[in-house]
Each structure stands twice: as structure tokens, then as C-alpha cells.
Amino acid sequence: MIRNPLLHKEFRQRMRTNRAPVVIVGYLASMSALTFFLLYENVQGQLLQFQPARSEQVFFVLSLMQMAVVAFLTPAFAAGSISGERERRTLAVLLTTPISPLGILVGKVLSSSALLILLLVVTLPLYSLVFLFGGAVPQEVVAVIAFQLFTIVIIAAISVLWSSIALRSGWSTVLAYATVGWMVFVTGFVGYGLNFIAQHSPVAYFAGRWAERVLSLNPLWIEAVLEKAVRADPHDWVWFAVFYSAVCLVLLGPAVWRLRPQALYWLPWLVRAEEKHYQ
């Protein structure tokens, strides 16, 4: 994986543009401003008095904001990765090299996740500020950061796979944002809706259980669970991981087909499938 040539090339290209430092500086500045504002609002006039509950609140808001921002930023970096190669007419040459379709997809996922991961890393000192005032325990912080990293990679993977399937960057961007919209908004509304039904209607017995299932597909909910801000099964993240990994596996087949149909010719029902010109 580390020897993936695409990964090296993409790192080099991405860090040479003006976009990367602008995004990093802009993001860090906004998050710093938000953190200082929240800290000031929560501890104003009482800087010498420890208020762990309030500091935990800062940590909670900060991490949720961060998750929301990276969830919506990731498709911007990943959704045009394969379709962009296709549109720039560099994909055909890449496909005549021995690099495998999986190697291309993995290289694109990691390279488009890398900048987002860097964004997380540069905000770590802000979390340490929260520690000054107590509240968040290190295990919680580690769990939240690890989950954020995982979510970035999952969203990047889904976006890259859409980018291969959709052929055009416009469509792949729409599909990638639709997926993030589903993850954040649809699951949130449906989950809370089911919860509401469960609380107010005694006949809807299963609504409560389904509410948790649906909500556990929401990255913001999982963060809240990891921070113990809501009452739910602490292992909800497993369902999240399994579900979205399965989504990636389902999309992987068509994505590989669009890159290199021959790679799937071991599947008997694909041998005679009509192949168009995808490069």
C-alpha cells in the first residue's frame, strides 16, 4: 500500500497546489476561533474554577462540528478522483500499466483522505486545550478521533467508488454528497422520527429498536455515543462500520467493471455482458 505509485504522485500534486495550504489554514483558524469562543463562553469569569461538565460540552460541540465539516469536505476531495482522470484523459494510459484496479482505487482513497486526516491532526492541539479544563478523558478523545478517521476513509472510499461508476465528475459529486446527506440528515431525521413515535405511541413497539439501528448509521450519533452524550449501545459503531463497509463492497464490483472489465471476467455471467468504452 505504501508503495502505491498513485499515492506518492497524488501527495506530490495535492500539496503543490495553493488549495491545500489555504484549506488547512482556513480550517485551523475557524476551528481555533470556535474553540476559544466556546471555552470563553463556558468558563468566562471563572477561569480558576474547574468545571469539567462545561469543558466536556466544549469537547462535544467541537468534535461534532469537526465531524460534520470533514464529512462534507471529504467528497470535495474524493468525488472527482477517477472521473477527473477520465475527463483529463489520463486514465487510459494508467490502465495500460500493470497497476490493478484495486491499486488505483486504494491509491485514490488514501490520497483523498490524506488531506482530511491532516486537518484532523492539525486540530489536535485544540483538543489539548479542552484537557486543561478537564471533562473529556483521553480514551474518549482517542475513540472520537479514531472514529473520525474511519469515517473520513469510508466517505472517501464511497466517493471514489462513485467517481469510477458515474464516469462524470458532476454525477459522482452529486452521488457522493447524496450519500453524505443520507448518512447525516436522512438517518438523523428518520431515527429521531422513529424515536418520537416510540415514545409517544405504545403500539409502535419496534419503532424504538429500529430508531437505534437507523441512528447508528449516522456518524454524528455515533460520536455522541462515543462521548456518552446520549444513551445507547456503546457498540453501535460496529453496526456503522459493518454497514458502510458492505456498501463499499457492493459498489466495488461496478467500480472495477468501469475501470477494467476484464478483471471481472472470471464471473461467468459477465463474460458476455456488453461493454462500452469507459476510458
Binding site: 505509485p5 504522485k9 506530490r12 503543490r16 483529463r88 489520463t90 494510459v93 500499466t97 500493470p98
Partner: peptide
């Protein structure tokens, strides 16, 4: 693929890579 060098009729190039880096990328492939 290992025994051909293919040049398509219309092709693009990668931005922000020098000529040497461009060739070295394909050497890595």
C-alpha cells in the same frame, strides 16, 4: 501490459508534475 507501450490518440497530462516526475511515476507503475 508489461510488454507494450501505448500512446493514445488524445491524452492528457498530470498538472503540477515535472517531466522527470511524470516519467518516474510511470516507472513506479
Amino acid at each position: 501490459r508489461r510488454c507494450i507501450g501505448y500512446m493514445p490518440d488524445s491524452f492528457g497530462v498530470y498538472d503540477d508534475l515535472s517531466a522527470e516526475e511524470y516519467l518516474l511515476f510511470y516507472a513506479d507503475c
